[in-house]
Amino acid sequence: MPTVSMTVNGKSVSGEVEGRTLLVQFLRDHLSLTGTHVGCDTGQCGACVVNVNGDSMKSCNMLAASADGAEVKTIEGMANDDGSLGVIQQAFQDNHGLQCGFCTPGMVMTADDLLARNPNPSEVEIREYLEGNLCRCTGYHNIVKSIQAASAAMTAGE
């Protein structure tokens, strides 16, 4: 079996995988990083979104082997160094941007990607950027508000 090595949340990791092992399986089963979730099998729901080399990607729609050598960031890597909630995470709590929490890791990772590219997105831009992330609980209202709040907090913090 091939060995893959990558950096996940700043730590070097490696493991033996099958050709068919998905990145999300490597994260959840090999690394016990169970914050990344699987909500569908057709690449639609976005619960599995992680950041690979600076881009949001669906980790259930990507082979672990193809992430060999990559820098991967997951929800477990989003808190501040002291363990407190990061800006986006805090904005989600402050604005009730989650209910059951299952889609939340993907939402936060997609928001992180959006705000890195577009620090002041409009409501329409936020909604369009969430096209690949399904939430069944919130009706999206408070997710949009959370991302707006995170944007404001980041802008204010600069």
Partner: peptide, 9 residues
Amino acid sequence: IGDPAVRHR
């Protein structure tokens, strides 16, 4: 095409 994560890949 697709969504941002799909377009990245």
